[in-house]
């Protein structure tokens, strides 16, 4: 007799647990306001990354097309995967030959966004930008030259 009661108890308990589970999902289907989906390309305007988000390395230029990079290669040394490559050149300033950057090459395809290059820079020339739409059709487009054509180093940065 006891086993029969247990048998029916088991069934009722099982059914109850199932109904409880259905109540949870039932709650969500009746509350469409709680939907969490964000429709990405449509919400581009309102989508804002957090300020610390690491998207890609950029070399800051001011309005006179001047940057702060001295070509010291500290970031190149700090980078664990060789994403940064600095090609130096010699320029003549006040009759002295000074080392400066010819090209600041940044391989986005190798970058792991660890952010180690940023604190390594002694002149705060580079920052991590918030951009995240990096998809391109050609791999070669991922290799970027960060210093703009014709840009030169700011005065007083050594």
């Amino acid at each position: 007799m006891k086993s029969i009661i247990n048998y029916f108890k088991e069934i009722l308990f099982g059914l109850k647990s199932l109904v409880k589970g259905m109540a949870v999902t039932g709650h969500y289907i009746t509350h469409p306001k709680e939907i969490i989906t964000q429709q990405y390309p449509e919400n581009r305007e309102s989508l804002k990354m957090f300020e610390r988000f690491r998207g890609e390395v950029v070399l800051l230029h001011d309005e006179n097309n001047e940057h702060k990079c001295t070509g010291c290669t500290a970031c190149e040394v700090a980078c664990p995967n060789g994403s940064i490559e600095i090609i130096p050149k010699r320029v003549e300033i006040d009759g002295r030959k000074v080392k400066a950057i010819d090209q600041f090459v940044y391989h986005l395809q190798m970058c792991t966004m660890c952010g180690l290059c940023i604190p390594a820079c002694p002149t705060d020339a580079i920052v991590m930008a918030n951009t995240f739409e990096h998809a391109v059709f050609d791999r070669s487009k991922l290799t970027k030259i960060l210093n703009k054509p014709g840009s030169k180093i700011m005065d007083g940065i050594k």
Partner: peptide, 12 residues
């Protein structure tokens, strides 16, 4: 239906 159960929008 599955999308609404899962707090998604489903095909849009």
């Amino acid at each position: 239906v599955s999308a609404f159960f899962q707090q998604r929008l489903g095909p849009m």
